[in-house]
Amino acid sequence: MKDFFCCLRGGSSSQVNEQEPPANNEEEEPPANNEDEDVLDVGAGVTFPWREIVVGTQNFEETRSLGKGKFGEVFRCDFPRINQVGAAKIHDHANRAGNIEFLAEMRVFGEAYHPNVINLIGKSFGEHKSAIVYEFMPNGSLHHHLFANARPSPGLRQETQVLDWGTRMGIAVGVAEALVHLHTGVKEIHRDVKVANILLDENLAPKLSDFGLAMQIIRNEEGDETPREINLIKGSRGYVAPETEEHMLVSTKSDVYSYGVFLLVLFTGREAYDLPKPRGKMNITDWLMPIWGRKEYLPLVIDTALGYNFPVDALHSLFFATRMCIDAQALARPSMAFVENMIREAASYPVTELIPVIERRHSIGHAVTELLPVIERRHSI
Protein backbone atom coordinates (compact mmCIF):
# COMPACT_ATOMS: atom_id res chain seq x y z
CA MET A 1 0.00 0.00 0.00
CA LYS A 2 2.89 2.33 0.75
CA ASP A 3 4.22 1.80 -2.78
CA PHE A 4 0.78 2.61 -4.14
CA PHE A 5 0.66 5.97 -2.37
CA CYS A 6 4.17 6.70 -3.60
CA CYS A 7 3.07 6.04 -7.18
CA LEU A 8 0.03 8.27 -6.76
CA ARG A 9 2.12 11.23 -5.72
CA GLY A 10 4.63 10.59 -8.46
CA GLY A 11 7.76 9.73 -6.52
CA SER A 12 9.33 7.79 -3.68
CA SER A 13 8.13 8.23 -0.13
CA SER A 14 11.38 9.95 0.78
CA GLN A 15 10.56 12.92 -1.44
CA VAL A 16 7.86 14.30 0.84
CA ASN A 17 8.47 14.87 4.53
CA GLU A 18 5.87 15.54 7.20
CA GLN A 19 7.18 18.87 8.39
CA GLU A 20 6.23 20.70 11.55
CA PRO A 21 5.49 24.44 11.42
CA PRO A 22 8.39 26.72 12.36
CA ALA A 23 9.17 26.84 16.08
CA ASN A 24 8.12 30.48 16.32
CA ASN A 25 4.64 29.49 15.03
CA GLU A 26 5.06 31.74 12.01
CA GLU A 27 4.00 30.08 8.81
CA GLU A 28 6.85 29.62 6.41
CA GLU A 29 6.43 31.57 3.20
CA PRO A 30 4.96 29.30 0.53
CA PRO A 31 7.07 28.76 -2.56
CA ALA A 32 6.09 30.18 -5.91
CA ASN A 33 3.12 28.70 -7.71
CA ASN A 34 5.18 27.61 -10.70
CA GLU A 35 7.20 25.04 -8.77
CA ASP A 36 6.00 21.60 -9.82
CA GLU A 37 6.89 20.04 -6.50
CA ASP A 38 4.40 22.26 -4.70
CA VAL A 39 1.16 21.93 -6.67
CA LEU A 40 0.87 19.11 -9.17
CA ASP A 41 -2.14 18.34 -11.36
CA VAL A 42 -2.43 14.60 -10.76
CA GLY A 43 -5.79 12.90 -11.29
CA ALA A 44 -8.72 14.49 -9.52
CA GLY A 45 -7.83 17.86 -8.01
CA VAL A 46 -4.33 19.12 -7.34
CA THR A 47 -1.63 17.53 -5.23
CA PHE A 48 -0.40 19.73 -2.37
CA PRO A 49 2.91 19.25 -0.57
CA TRP A 50 2.38 17.75 2.86
CA ARG A 51 3.94 20.76 4.57
CA GLU A 52 1.11 22.90 3.21
CA ILE A 53 -1.43 20.68 4.97
CA VAL A 54 0.52 20.88 8.24
CA VAL A 55 0.79 24.67 8.06
CA GLY A 56 -2.77 25.15 6.81
CA THR A 57 -4.21 23.21 9.74
CA GLN A 58 -1.79 24.86 12.20
CA ASN A 59 -0.22 21.47 12.87
CA PHE A 60 -3.65 19.83 13.21
CA GLU A 61 -4.74 22.22 15.93
CA GLU A 62 -7.79 21.00 17.84
CA THR A 63 -9.59 24.30 17.34
CA ARG A 64 -9.56 23.58 13.60
CA SER A 65 -11.19 20.17 13.88
CA LEU A 66 -14.38 19.76 11.86
CA GLY A 67 -15.17 16.26 13.03
CA LYS A 68 -13.79 12.78 13.45
CA GLY A 69 -14.86 9.69 11.54
CA LYS A 70 -14.01 6.00 11.65
CA PHE A 71 -10.92 6.38 9.51
CA GLY A 72 -9.67 9.89 10.13
CA GLU A 73 -10.21 13.40 11.42
CA VAL A 74 -11.19 16.40 9.29
CA PHE A 75 -9.56 19.80 9.80
CA ARG A 76 -10.19 23.27 8.48
CA CYS A 77 -7.20 24.01 6.25
CA ASP A 78 -6.19 27.39 4.80
CA PHE A 79 -4.52 27.63 1.39
CA PRO A 80 -3.47 31.29 1.05
CA ARG A 81 -1.66 30.69 -2.24
CA ILE A 82 -4.90 29.78 -3.97
CA ASN A 83 -7.00 32.01 -1.72
CA GLN A 84 -9.19 29.13 -0.59
CA VAL A 85 -10.25 27.34 2.58
CA GLY A 86 -10.58 23.58 2.49
CA ALA A 87 -11.49 20.66 4.72
CA ALA A 88 -8.60 18.21 4.96
CA LYS A 89 -9.50 14.63 5.89
CA ILE A 90 -6.38 13.06 7.38
CA HIS A 91 -5.71 9.38 6.85
CA ASP A 92 -3.05 7.29 8.58
CA HIS A 93 -1.39 4.78 6.23
CA ALA A 94 -1.20 2.24 9.05
CA ASN A 95 -4.99 1.97 9.00
CA ARG A 96 -5.65 -0.68 6.35
CA ALA A 97 -9.40 -0.13 6.33
CA GLY A 98 -8.68 3.56 5.92
CA ASN A 99 -6.50 2.80 2.90
CA ILE A 100 -9.47 1.17 1.18
CA GLU A 101 -11.69 4.12 2.08
CA PHE A 102 -9.12 6.57 0.74
CA LEU A 103 -8.93 4.75 -2.60
CA ALA A 104 -12.73 4.54 -2.85
CA GLU A 105 -13.06 8.29 -2.32
CA MET A 106 -10.40 9.04 -4.92
CA ARG A 107 -12.17 6.75 -7.41
CA VAL A 108 -15.56 8.40 -6.93
CA PHE A 109 -14.18 11.93 -6.96
CA GLY A 110 -12.68 11.27 -10.37
CA GLU A 111 -16.20 11.29 -11.86
CA ALA A 112 -18.67 12.68 -9.32
CA TYR A 113 -19.03 16.26 -10.52
CA HIS A 114 -22.43 17.55 -9.45
CA PRO A 115 -23.78 20.67 -7.68
CA ASN A 116 -24.99 18.52 -4.79
CA VAL A 117 -21.82 16.46 -4.38
CA ILE A 118 -18.96 17.87 -2.32
CA ASN A 119 -16.19 19.22 -4.56
CA LEU A 120 -12.66 17.91 -4.35
CA ILE A 121 -9.94 20.56 -4.11
CA GLY A 122 -7.00 18.19 -4.02
CA LYS A 123 -4.96 15.68 -2.08
CA SER A 124 -1.64 15.37 -0.31
CA PHE A 125 0.71 12.49 0.47
CA GLY A 126 3.04 12.47 3.44
CA GLU A 127 5.43 9.82 4.67
CA HIS A 128 2.94 8.21 7.04
CA LYS A 129 -0.27 10.09 6.36
CA SER A 130 -2.33 11.35 3.45
CA ALA A 131 -5.12 13.88 3.07
CA ILE A 132 -8.11 14.40 0.83
CA VAL A 133 -9.04 18.07 0.66
CA TYR A 134 -12.67 19.03 0.03
CA GLU A 135 -14.30 22.40 -0.31
CA PHE A 136 -15.05 23.90 3.10
CA MET A 137 -18.74 23.97 4.01
CA PRO A 138 -19.29 26.90 6.43
CA ASN A 139 -22.55 25.51 7.83
CA GLY A 140 -21.14 22.09 8.62
CA SER A 141 -23.25 18.96 8.55
CA LEU A 142 -27.02 18.71 8.48
CA HIS A 143 -26.85 16.72 11.72
CA HIS A 144 -25.35 19.78 13.40
CA HIS A 145 -28.50 21.82 12.67
CA LEU A 146 -31.13 19.17 13.36
CA PHE A 147 -30.03 18.20 16.84
CA ALA A 148 -29.49 20.75 19.58
CA ASN A 149 -27.40 18.29 21.60
CA ALA A 150 -24.96 17.67 18.74
CA ARG A 151 -21.40 18.42 19.78
CA PRO A 152 -20.30 21.57 17.92
CA SER A 153 -17.21 21.32 15.73
CA PRO A 154 -14.40 23.61 16.97
CA GLY A 155 -13.50 24.51 13.38
CA LEU A 156 -16.97 25.84 12.55
CA ARG A 157 -17.84 29.45 13.25
CA GLN A 158 -21.46 29.60 12.12
CA GLU A 159 -24.27 29.13 14.62
CA THR A 160 -26.81 26.39 14.12
CA GLN A 161 -29.99 27.39 12.32
CA VAL A 162 -33.60 26.28 12.56
CA LEU A 163 -34.39 24.80 9.16
CA ASP A 164 -37.85 25.65 7.88
CA TRP A 165 -40.01 23.44 5.66
CA GLY A 166 -38.81 24.97 2.39
CA THR A 167 -35.15 24.58 3.34
CA ARG A 168 -35.67 20.95 4.34
CA MET A 169 -37.49 20.18 1.11
CA GLY A 170 -34.65 21.80 -0.84
CA ILE A 171 -32.18 19.60 1.02
CA ALA A 172 -34.28 16.49 0.33
CA VAL A 173 -34.42 17.26 -3.39
CA GLY A 174 -30.71 18.07 -3.59
CA VAL A 175 -29.65 14.84 -1.88
CA ALA A 176 -31.97 12.85 -4.17
CA GLU A 177 -30.36 14.50 -7.21
CA ALA A 178 -26.89 13.64 -5.90
CA LEU A 179 -27.82 9.98 -5.44
CA VAL A 180 -29.38 9.76 -8.90
CA HIS A 181 -26.14 11.12 -10.33
CA LEU A 182 -24.11 8.68 -8.26
CA HIS A 183 -26.20 5.69 -9.38
CA THR A 184 -26.70 6.55 -13.06
CA GLY A 185 -23.74 8.76 -13.89
CA VAL A 186 -20.90 7.54 -11.70
CA LYS A 187 -22.41 4.04 -11.29
CA GLU A 188 -21.54 3.75 -7.62
CA ILE A 189 -23.38 2.74 -4.44
CA HIS A 190 -22.79 5.22 -1.61
CA ARG A 191 -23.56 2.86 1.31
CA ASP A 192 -23.55 5.51 4.03
CA VAL A 193 -26.33 8.01 3.31
CA LYS A 194 -27.18 9.83 6.55
CA VAL A 195 -27.70 13.37 7.83
CA ALA A 196 -24.13 13.56 9.16
CA ASN A 197 -22.80 13.02 5.62
CA ILE A 198 -24.82 15.88 4.17
CA LEU A 199 -22.87 19.14 4.33
CA LEU A 200 -24.43 22.58 3.93
CA ASP A 201 -22.92 25.51 2.08
CA GLU A 202 -23.42 29.20 2.89
CA ASN A 203 -26.91 29.06 1.36
CA LEU A 204 -27.83 25.81 3.15
CA ALA A 205 -27.67 23.91 -0.14
CA PRO A 206 -26.80 20.23 0.48
CA LYS A 207 -23.62 18.45 -0.60
CA LEU A 208 -23.36 14.67 -0.40
CA SER A 209 -20.01 13.65 1.11
CA ASP A 210 -17.98 10.73 2.46
CA PHE A 211 -17.57 8.15 -0.30
CA GLY A 212 -15.22 5.89 1.64
CA LEU A 213 -17.64 2.94 1.62
CA ALA A 214 -18.66 3.38 -2.03
CA MET A 215 -18.79 0.30 -4.25
CA GLN A 216 -19.16 0.08 -8.00
CA ILE A 217 -22.47 -1.15 -9.40
CA ILE A 218 -22.27 -4.47 -11.21
CA ARG A 219 -24.78 -5.75 -13.77
CA ASN A 220 -25.50 -9.13 -15.32
CA GLU A 221 -25.58 -9.93 -19.04
CA GLU A 222 -29.16 -8.67 -19.27
CA GLY A 223 -28.11 -5.32 -17.85
CA ASP A 224 -29.87 -5.79 -14.51
CA GLU A 225 -28.10 -4.73 -11.35
CA THR A 226 -26.69 -7.58 -9.28
CA PRO A 227 -26.50 -7.09 -5.49
CA ARG A 228 -22.96 -7.17 -4.19
CA GLU A 229 -21.87 -9.35 -1.30
CA ILE A 230 -19.88 -7.82 1.54
CA ASN A 231 -17.85 -9.44 4.30
CA LEU A 232 -18.54 -6.89 7.01
CA ILE A 233 -21.56 -4.71 7.65
CA LYS A 234 -20.60 -1.06 7.49
CA GLY A 235 -22.69 2.06 7.50
CA SER A 236 -24.63 3.72 10.29
CA ARG A 237 -27.06 2.11 12.67
CA GLY A 238 -30.66 2.77 11.77
CA TYR A 239 -29.81 3.57 8.15
CA VAL A 240 -28.64 0.09 7.08
CA ALA A 241 -31.08 -1.80 4.83
CA PRO A 242 -32.56 -5.14 6.00
CA GLU A 243 -30.92 -7.15 3.19
CA THR A 244 -27.55 -5.81 4.29
CA GLU A 245 -28.09 -6.69 7.95
CA GLU A 246 -29.56 -10.12 7.21
CA HIS A 247 -27.83 -11.28 4.02
CA MET A 248 -24.74 -9.04 3.67
CA LEU A 249 -25.96 -7.65 0.32
CA VAL A 250 -25.74 -4.08 -0.96
CA SER A 251 -27.12 -2.39 -4.06
CA THR A 252 -28.53 0.94 -5.16
CA LYS A 253 -31.74 -0.15 -3.42
CA SER A 254 -29.75 -0.11 -0.16
CA ASP A 255 -29.09 3.57 -0.79
CA VAL A 256 -32.81 4.07 -1.47
CA TYR A 257 -33.59 2.57 1.94
CA SER A 258 -31.03 4.82 3.65
CA TYR A 259 -32.46 7.82 1.84
CA GLY A 260 -35.91 6.95 3.17
CA VAL A 261 -34.55 6.88 6.72
CA PHE A 262 -32.73 10.15 5.99
CA LEU A 263 -36.10 11.73 5.09
CA LEU A 264 -37.64 10.54 8.34
CA VAL A 265 -34.79 12.03 10.35
CA LEU A 266 -34.90 15.28 8.37
CA PHE A 267 -38.60 15.89 8.93
CA THR A 268 -39.16 14.41 12.41
CA GLY A 269 -35.99 15.71 14.04
CA ARG A 270 -35.42 12.30 15.61
CA GLU A 271 -32.25 10.21 15.38
CA ALA A 272 -32.33 7.16 13.10
CA TYR A 273 -31.32 5.00 16.04
CA ASP A 274 -32.03 6.29 19.53
CA LEU A 275 -30.51 3.99 22.15
CA PRO A 276 -32.28 5.55 25.18
CA LYS A 277 -35.66 4.68 23.67
CA PRO A 278 -37.47 1.50 24.81
CA ARG A 279 -36.86 -1.73 22.91
CA GLY A 280 -38.88 -1.78 19.70
CA LYS A 281 -38.72 2.01 19.35
CA MET A 282 -34.97 2.55 18.98
CA ASN A 283 -35.15 2.50 15.17
CA ILE A 284 -37.07 5.42 13.73
CA THR A 285 -38.84 3.07 11.31
CA ASP A 286 -40.20 1.00 14.22
CA TRP A 287 -41.15 4.13 16.15
CA LEU A 288 -43.31 5.34 13.26
CA MET A 289 -44.85 1.96 12.45
CA PRO A 290 -48.20 2.64 14.24
CA ILE A 291 -49.07 5.59 11.99
CA TRP A 292 -47.99 4.41 8.53
CA GLY A 293 -51.59 3.68 7.55
CA ARG A 294 -53.07 6.69 9.36
CA LYS A 295 -51.95 9.75 7.46
CA GLU A 296 -54.20 12.08 9.45
CA TYR A 297 -51.77 11.66 12.35
CA LEU A 298 -48.59 12.46 10.41
CA PRO A 299 -48.53 16.10 11.63
CA LEU A 300 -48.07 14.73 15.15
CA VAL A 301 -44.60 13.38 14.41
CA ILE A 302 -43.18 16.34 12.48
CA ASP A 303 -40.25 18.15 14.08
CA THR A 304 -41.66 20.66 16.56
CA ALA A 305 -39.13 23.22 15.27
CA LEU A 306 -41.30 23.48 12.14
CA GLY A 307 -44.28 24.64 14.15
CA TYR A 308 -47.37 24.34 11.96
CA ASN A 309 -45.85 25.90 8.86
CA PHE A 310 -46.01 23.10 6.32
CA PRO A 311 -48.46 21.91 3.64
CA VAL A 312 -50.35 18.81 4.72
CA ASP A 313 -50.67 17.48 1.15
CA ALA A 314 -46.90 17.72 0.74
CA LEU A 315 -46.45 15.91 4.05
CA HIS A 316 -48.65 13.06 2.84
CA SER A 317 -46.74 12.82 -0.46
CA LEU A 318 -43.43 12.92 1.36
CA PHE A 319 -44.29 10.10 3.73
CA PHE A 320 -45.80 8.03 0.92
CA ALA A 321 -42.47 8.24 -0.91
CA THR A 322 -40.61 7.48 2.31
CA ARG A 323 -42.67 4.39 2.96
CA MET A 324 -41.81 3.08 -0.51
CA CYS A 325 -38.12 3.72 0.15
CA ILE A 326 -38.02 1.73 3.38
CA ASP A 327 -39.89 -1.32 2.09
CA ALA A 328 -38.35 -4.42 3.67
CA GLN A 329 -38.05 -6.03 0.22
CA ALA A 330 -35.25 -4.44 -1.80
CA LEU A 331 -36.86 -5.23 -5.17
CA ALA A 332 -40.07 -3.49 -4.10
CA ARG A 333 -38.29 -0.19 -3.59
CA PRO A 334 -38.31 2.32 -6.45
CA SER A 335 -35.19 3.67 -8.11
CA MET A 336 -33.70 6.93 -6.85
CA ALA A 337 -34.78 8.61 -10.10
CA PHE A 338 -38.40 7.69 -9.34
CA VAL A 339 -38.03 8.84 -5.74
CA GLU A 340 -36.52 12.15 -6.86
CA ASN A 341 -39.62 12.89 -8.96
CA MET A 342 -41.88 12.15 -6.00
CA ILE A 343 -39.89 14.43 -3.70
CA ARG A 344 -39.95 17.19 -6.31
CA GLU A 345 -43.72 16.90 -6.44
CA ALA A 346 -43.93 17.18 -2.65
CA ALA A 347 -41.66 20.23 -2.78
CA SER A 348 -43.97 21.98 -5.25
CA TYR A 349 -46.77 22.53 -2.73
CA PRO A 350 -46.92 26.06 -1.30
CA VAL A 351 -46.27 26.33 2.43
CA THR A 352 -49.40 26.99 4.45
CA GLU A 353 -49.97 27.11 8.16
CA LEU A 354 -51.66 24.04 9.55
CA ILE A 355 -54.45 24.58 12.07
CA PRO A 356 -52.81 23.68 15.39
CA VAL A 357 -53.70 20.21 16.59
CA ILE A 358 -54.83 21.63 19.91
CA GLU A 359 -57.71 23.28 18.01
CA ARG A 360 -58.54 20.10 16.10
CA ARG A 361 -59.00 17.75 19.03
CA HIS A 362 -62.77 17.74 18.61
CA SER A 363 -62.41 16.28 15.11
CA ILE A 364 -59.77 13.73 15.97
CA GLY A 365 -61.40 12.68 19.20
CA HIS A 366 -60.18 9.96 21.49
CA ALA A 367 -58.10 8.31 18.76
CA VAL A 368 -55.33 10.85 19.30
CA THR A 369 -55.28 10.21 23.02
CA GLU A 370 -54.97 6.50 22.37
CA LEU A 371 -52.22 6.98 19.81
CA LEU A 372 -50.01 9.41 21.72
CA PRO A 373 -48.45 6.86 24.10
CA VAL A 374 -47.54 4.72 21.10
CA ILE A 375 -45.85 7.35 18.97
CA GLU A 376 -44.48 9.33 21.94
CA ARG A 377 -45.65 12.60 20.50
CA ARG A 378 -43.45 15.52 21.51
CA HIS A 379 -46.06 18.23 20.97
CA SER A 380 -48.06 19.29 23.97
CA ILE A 381 -51.82 19.07 23.65
Rank of each mutant, 00 (worst) to 15 (best):
P290Y: 03
R360Y: 06
L372W: 12
I364R: 08
H366I: 13
D286Q: 10
G307C: 01
P350I: 08
W287I: 00
V368Q: 10
H316K: 12
V374M: 13
L354D: 14
D303M: 05
I358G: 09
M336K: 09
Y308V: 01
I284E: 01
F319N: 01
I358F: 10
Y297G: 03
V357R: 11
A367G: 12
S335D: 08
T352Q: 12
I284M: 00
M289K: 15
E345N: 13
I358M: 11
T322G: 05
M289W: 14
Y308G: 01
D327R: 00
V312D: 11
L300I: 02
A321Y: 07
R323Q: 15
M324K: 13
A332C: 10
L331V: 12
P311T: 08
P334E: 02
L371P: 04
S335I: 00
P334F: 00
C325G: 00
S348R: 05
S348E: 04
C325F: 01
F320N: 13
I355K: 14
S335G: 07
I355D: 14
H366Y: 13
P356D: 14
P334R: 03
K295D: 07
A305W: 03
F320W: 12
L298D: 00
D327M: 04
V374L: 13
T304P: 02
M324F: 01
M342R: 12
P373H: 07
V301A: 10
Y308H: 03
P350S: 12
E353G: 12
M336I: 09
A347W: 03
Q329F: 10
N309T: 09
P334N: 05
Y308I: 01
L371C: 04
E359A: 08
V339T: 07
G307A: 03
W287N: 02
K295P: 03
V312W: 12
M289Y: 15
I343T: 06
A305M: 09
H316V: 11
I302S: 08
D313C: 08
A330Y: 09
V374E: 15
H362C: 11
